[in-house]
């Protein structure tokens, strides 16, 4: 009996939270207009959300690409198909690993930072202070960060894939002796712009939207204490990871399911 009560209560709490989050999203979206009027707010956030994530994306992308090169070569060489290494590396990066891993890193690097920042601003009364100064914190603080996250994510994912392909090439042709021309030309011949690249970009756009939304909402909804902010930050990373991987499955099934 106690179990059912608990189940009901937590389901209800979950739906209430989803409702708050949706309402919050509507407010963010309606605040976007005022961000476009003031591009300087956006630029500052693009710097802290996007540019500062640059290093982690480049380094991780390079290593992921290099590992793909090694593992791919091992399998492909057994079938005498080393020349298609470029295709394998590029396809796995552009379709899957680029958007997904970049989004996971983004949630860990930028999402957690956003949650902690907003949560602390709430805890130190900066948000209600702004409200009392007749400045809408959603428009001034939240919407620029949302737009910055939404815009940076596809760029970071593209960067991740590009660096990864170079990493695969370094290992493949530099270390393992795959023909350089074959690596690039096979890739160019096989990968389709619309089917592979655009679908990858669509994925990263979706992930950017969801991750920024989760991170900002968790911060804004955090209990304004040290413990509350720390919990909210954890929830951001966990919920973002779940959403990214779950949505990736759905999107992959929709995009590539027929083949």
């Amino acid at each position: 009996m106690e179990f059912f009560r608990y189940l009901g209560a937590s389901t209800r709490a979950g739906f209430t939270k989803l409702g708050r989050a949706s309402y919050f999203l509507i407010e963010i979206l309606s605040g976007l207009g005022s961000v476009i009027v003031r591009p300087r707010l956006l630029l500052k956030q693009l710097h802290s959300v996007g540019v500062l994530s640059f290093l982690i994306i480049v380094i991780s992308g390079l290593f992921v690409g290099m590992v793909l090169g090694l593992q791919g070569f091992y399998i492909l060489s057994r079938f005498g198909a080393e020349e298609t290494l470029g295709v394998m590396v590029a396809a796995s990066l552009v379709r899957e690993l680029g958007p997904v891993v970049a989004a996971l890193l983004f949630a860990g690097r930028a999402g957690s930072a956003l949650t902690a920042e907003i949560g602390l601003m709430k805890a130190t009364e900066q948000l209600s202070g702004m409200e009392m100064m007749a400045i809408d914190p959603i428009k001034r603080i939240i919407s620029p960060r949302f737009l910055a996250g939404f815009l940076s994510m596809p760029l970071l994912a593209a960067l991740f894939s590009a660096v990864g392909i170079i990493g695969g090439q370094l290992v493949g042709s530099g270390l393992l002796g795959v023909d350089d021309g074959a690596y690039w030309s096979q890739m160019q011949a096989t990968l389709d712009f619309k089917h592979d690249i655009i679908n990858g970009v669509v994925k990263s756009v979706v992930f950017g939207f969801v991750t920024s939304w989760i991170a900002l909402f968790e911060g804004y909804d955090a209990i304004p204490t040290a413990e509350g902010v720390s919990r909210a930050t954890t929830r951001t990373v966990v919920n973002s990871a779940f959403s990214i991987l779950g949505l990736d499955f759905i999107l992959t099934a929709l995009m590539f399911g027929e083949h």
Binding site: M121, T124, E125, Q126, S128, G129, M132
Partner: peptide, 9 residues
């Protein structure tokens, strides 16, 4: 005037 000051940090 908030108790904490509520300055933007």
């Amino acid at each position: 005037l908030f108790q904490s000051g509520a300055l933007l940090t």
